[in-house]
Design a protein around this nucleic acid. Sequence first.
DNA 1: GCACTAGAATGACGAATCGTCAAAAACTGG
DNA 2: CCAGTTTTTGACGATTCGTCATTCTAGTGC
Lengths: 250, 250
Amino acid sequence: MSATTADEPLQKRQQAKLQREQQLLLLAQQILQQDGFAGLTMDRLTALSSVSKGTIYNHFCSKEDLFTALSVDSLQRQLQLFQQALQIPGHSREQALALHLAYYRFSTTEPTLFLCLLTATTPGVVEKSSPERLALRQQLEFQLAALCQQLITQAIALGDLQLRAGQTIDALAFVQWAQAFGGNALFKPTQQLGLFSQLQAQPTMLLGVNLLLDGLNWRPLSSEWDYQASWQRMMAILATQQLGAAGQSN
Amino acid sequence: MSATTADEPLQKRQQAKLQREQQLLLLAQQILQQDGFAGLTMDRLTALSSVSKGTIYNHFCSKEDLFTALSVDSLQRQLQLFQQALQIPGHSREQALALHLAYYRFSTTEPTLFLCLLTATTPGVVEKSSPERLALRQQLEFQLAALCQQLITQAIALGDLQLRAGQTIDALAFVQWAQAFGGNALFKPTQQLGLFSQLQAQPTMLLGVNLLLDGLNWRPLSSEWDYQASWQRMMAILATQQLGAAGQSN
DNA sequence: GCACTAGAATGACGAATCGTCAAAAACTGG
DNA sequence: CCAGTTTTTGACGATTCGTCATTCTAGTGC
């Protein structure tokens, strides 16, 4: 087998396969949006797609695996938004805020994907997903975590932040991740259910971040800087930019 | 119909029905623990219970409704633990910490119930649950939120905490709820997946709370008080008390 | 005790959905 | 065009969900 010519068609195959997988995932998202999560069945997905059921099961080992694949897409989108947010100039704490803003934006502009992420965290889904895809998700989560940790490291190097006893970069990244995830995951349902019906999403998210970062003594403190202005400025910048470099032509 | 005798049998019926519902929920938990979430089917639940499928569907309108019922149980347990934690003496910020501790304890001592709560947040489950049970859950969440808000109100009255611009009691309760939920929901999976494998759960949770409450300037600050000692003291107290007043004789 | 009735329980059954696999089709290099 | 390989197909079997006509039970009047 000549190395150059033999695997070229293979790569084409692989590429075509990946592309079709993306189309299937897109279609699944559309079904979820239109008919809700209860409306997504493999038969329906088959009917609306251009391929047969067997082929779909050639991509996803189970319906749950499909959800995990959607969650991978979700994390990729999140990564895009994170990187985009880090392009915005500002001091280190503003950049941390930018990440939270990106997370919030993600959960609002792509509610379906965010809910897929939530669903894919569920044990019933994890148990029936393929190990390969779960590993893929883990890898993306690593990348996201790395971005956060990098940001924190820079802040320390710049002198905007100092680690106190019991604080590690890992722990700080985790705590902020938890805050962002929890806030965004709880907001819609609780507000919808009337639990905290008075709350406005954006100010509340901003408050959470400010409390956390003030607690860390991450300079400049919220008393020394108008982070609401920062939030609005960054939001405006992101809203202008046409969402993401890897945008489908659609 | 004489009022006294006519509804006595009715009440007995109702009570027996509620009791059986609890037994079914307990059995469902056992199945979840033993065989995982994928191992819980209505047929299996029927087989292991003493009643027939029709009767089970007389309690729960769908499998998803069963999960929502489990999440209601979950919140009831959480409420118990919260009330128990509030019995522990301490200043206002220690009591706030006690609530976080109770949440953490809940997620570790009852992992299955906690995962049911997570699962029941999922749109696929919400969509197929009965409105009545969803309303019941909302009611319990109200009670939990009320506890938090009450605690914050007291802290303000005592002068340990002052609201700054943009802060409301609702918002503070929500932010802490988000922190607790996010932290506990993410810890197991992320650690298991090796994302933050170095982190120890309890110190990390404590760190998160301290950052948040320091950011709020809730006195005494973590620099003025040894909250690790508080955490351990309260943990010891709770561990001694035999978990909850409403304990089944089992 | 016995007939009667309202309401609950039963479990066999139909329906919906999942996932598989032998056969067909498409593609490969020669 | 052919033999070999890979991919696709969709009918089919298997599993699980949810229902409903029937049976049973507990209370009531006689």
